[in-house]
Design a protein around this nucleic acid. Structure first.
Lengths: 338, 338
DNA sequence: CTTCACCATGTAAGCCCTTACATTAAGTAT
DNA sequence: ATACTTAATGTAAGGGCTTACATGGTGAAG
C-alpha cells in the first residue's frame, strides 16, 4: 500500500484548469463563480478526493472550527451526559470537539491551556481549576469561552448554570413535608460551586422551617459513591441520627442507601434519602432515588450554542442561562409513588 | 478589555534581537543554541506570553499532536470509561483528543471523516459505522488508526480487543455450574462484533455441556436497559421459561432484574442473571450483578499507546492486543458471596 | 464603433511556523 | 600569522489556504 500524498488546492486548480483562487471560492461559496466553472471544479474535487487541509485553512482564516471542552473527569455519569450534549450540538454546527479532562491536576493548566488555545476557537469550561487569572488571559488573547456550572464574581462572561440553590431548597422542603426535622446534608468539595449553592439551599430551607443548622448533621463528601458511604457511616453512628438525608449528588446518595441497608436501617422508613442530578442509575436503585433532575444534556447543548454564537458575535451582550432543577419523586424519600 | 493580538515568533525574535530561526530552535530544543542566547529568548517568551500557533506549526511540521476518537455514543457507561482511559493516556503523551460521536448516523461519515482527518494524526475507531472502504481510504491518505473492540477480515491493522467469546463462555459455564440447563441469551445489535462473539461463546458453552441451542431462549436486544426489559418480558412469558439468563451486557441485565422483580420472579432464586462489562452500576443493583469484567479504561489506554507508537514507527509490525474478561461473582447468579 | 461598467477569474501577499542551507565568528593546528 | 574546522546564528523557501487587488472580457450605453 503506497502512501498517497494528499492533493492540494494547487493540484485541483491544475487539473480543473482554473486558478487556486477559483477553487477556494467554490469551496467557501464566498463569491460568484460561473456555474459551469463551479461544476467543473466540484467534479475535479470529487475525482481527486480532495479535502482542504484544516491547518492551512485555520492559519489563513484564523479560525479552527473546533471548540474545546475542559472538565474534571469524563467517567462519571454527570459529565459524560453533559459532554454528550456538547458533542451533539457541536456536530450539528459542523464543529469539532476537543476535550481535556483535568483529573484534578490544576498545576498542569499552565501548560495545556495555551497549547489547546491555538487548536480551538473557544472553550466550554466546566471546572474550577481554571482560575480567574487564566480566564482573563484567554480573554485577552481573543479566545472566547463560556462557563458551565459555575460563575466568577470578578469576571463576567457567558455562562450556563443550574439553579442549585433553588433545587436544593426544593429537595429539603420535600423532606420537611414528610415531617422530617433532623435532615442531614452531605456536601461535595468545598470549592465546588455546586456544593456551595446546594448547601445554601439546604440552609435556607431549614431556616424557612424554623430549624437550626445542626453542625453534626452536615458532613463533607466528595460527590463520589465512596464519599457517600463514609458520610452515611458517620451519620448513622450518631447518638441521635438523622431521619433524612439530602445528599449533594446522586452518586453519594446511592452510597448512603447501600450503607443504610448494611446497617439495617430501612430506606425510606427509618432514613429518607434525596439526591441531586438524576443520573440514570437513580431509577434503578432499591428503593428508587428521589432527586432533583438536571437537564444535563441540555446544559451541554446550550453552552455550545452560547459559545458558537459568541464566536460569531464577539460584541454581543453577555448571557447567563439558568435552568431550574425538577424534583423527581421516587421512593427513597418515603413517597410510595411508583 | 482590548483584544491583544497574539505575539508571533517574529515579535519574539525582534524583541530578543535574534532571528526567528533561533527562537524556533530554543522552542523545539532541536539544535544547539548558546546558553545565554537561550536564556534571553526564553525570558522574552515569558515576558511576551508567547505561545506558538499550533496551526502554523502543524502546517510546517505536518503533524497535529492530536488524535481522534470515533465512537457511537459517549453517554453510556462503557464508552465513557474507555474514553476516560484514552483521554488520560493522550494527555500523558501531550496529545490532544478530538472526539466524535456518530450517534448511529452512518451517512454522515463521508462528510466528517475527511474533515476530522486533517485535524488529527490518527484515529481510534470504536464504531462499526466506519467501514472497510473508508478505513482503506484513510490508510491511503497516510492517516493511521487503531480499532478498538472490533476487527475486519479484509483489512489488517492495529487493534485492541476483549476476548468476548472466552468471556461469554466463562459466564455461561458458571451458570451451568449452578445446575442451570435452560439458559437464555440476550444479544445486542446483530452487526456488533461484541454481540457476535458473545453469542458464539454462549453457544460453545452449551455445546460443551451437551445442550442444544433452544431458539426460543435466544432473544435479540440492543445493549440498552429498555432492550433488556423487553427481552425479559418475552422470556418470562414463555410456557417454559428459562431458569437463567446470560445478558450480552450489564445494562440489559439490569433491565432483566427489574422486570423479574416486577413479575415476582425472585433473582437469583428463580432466575439467575449474569451480565457482561462490569459497569459501575453492576455493583449497586439488588441483587448485585455477576458479570464479566472488561478493563475498559485499560482498553482505552492501550489503544492510545498503540496509536502513538504507530505514529512514530509507521512500518512497525501490526499488533493485536487481546484482553481477557474476568468473571466477577456477585449475587445475581445464585452465589451467596458478598 | 468606442467607452464604461461589471462580472469572472487570476496574481500575489500574507497567516506563522520549521528547517535546509548559507554565513559569520571563533577556535585549532600548523 | 594563515588556513581550516566547527559552533552559533541568520536567510529564505516552503507548507496549503484565503482574499485584496489586478486583469481581461463581455454587454450595455452612447
Amino acid at each position: 500500500m503506497v502512501k498517497k500524498k494528499n492533493p492540494t488546492i494547487y493540484n485541483v486548480a491544475d487539473r480543473a484548469q482554473v486558478s487556486i483562487a477559483t477553487v477556494s471560492r467554490v469551496l467557501s461559496n464566498s463569491q460568484k463563480v460561473r456555474p459551469e466553472t463551479r461544476e467543473k471544479v466540484l467534479r475535479t474535487i470529487q475525482e481527486m478526493e480532495y479535502h482542504p487541509n484544516q491547518a492551512a485553512r485555520k492559519l489563513a482564516y484564523q479560525t479552527t472550527g473546533t471548540i474545546g471542552l475542559i472538565f474534571p473527569d469524563i467517567s462519571g455519569p454527570y459529565y459524560s451526559m453533559v459532554i454528550s450534549g456538547v458533542d451533539q450540538e457541536a456536530d450539528r454546527h459542523e464543529h469539532s470537539l476537543l476535550i481535556y479532562g483535568t483529573r484534578g491536576k490544576p498545576t498542569a493548566h499552565d501548560r495545556f491551556l495555551p497549547m489547546l488555545s491555538s487548536k480551538v476557537d473557544g472553550f466550554i469550561i466546566m471546572t474550577r481549576t481554571v482560575d480567574e487569572g487564566q480566564l482573563l488571559n484567554l480573554h485577552r488573547q481573543g479566545i472566547q469561552f463560556v462557563l458551565l456550572g459555575q460563575r466568577y464574581d470578578s469576571f463576567d462572561c457567558d455562562s450556563v448554570m443550574l439553579d442549585n440553590r433553588a433545587g436544593a431548597y426544593q429537595a429539603v422542603l420535600h423532606l420537611l413535608g414528610h415531617g422530617h426535622r433532623r435532615i442531614a446534608f452531605i456536601g461535595g468539595p468545598e470549592d465546588s460551586h455546586a456544593h456551595q449553592e446546594r448547601f445554601d439551599g439546604y440552609q435556607a430551607a431549614l431556616r424557612h422551617a424554623g430549624l437550626n443548622l445542626e453542625p453534626e448533621l452536615v458532613v463533607k463528601g466528595n460527590f463520589l459513591y465512596e464519599g457517600g458511604r463514609m458520610a452515611a457511616q458517620q451519620l448513622l453512628s450518631l447518638a441521635n441520627p438523622p431521619t433524612a438525608v439530602f445528599s449533594g449528588n446522586d452518586e453519594m446518595a446511592i452510597g448512603v442507601i447501600d450503607v443504610a441497608k448494611q446497617m439495617n436501617v430501612p430506606v425510606p422508613e427509618k432514613l429518607a434519602v434525596v439526591g441531586f442530578d438524576d443520573i440514570q442509575m437513580a431509577l434503578y436503585t432499591q428503593p428508587s432515588l428521589t432527586t432533583i433532575r438536571q437537564p444535563m444534556k441540555r446544559l451541554g447543548e446550550v453552552a455550545t450554542q452560547l459559545l458558537l454564537y459568541r464566536l460569531k458575535e464577539r460584541e454581543a451582550p453577555i448571557r447567563h442561562e439558568v435552568f431550574s432543577g425538577e424534583l423527581i419523586v421516587r421512593r427513597s424519600c418515603g413517597c410510595s409513588s411508583e
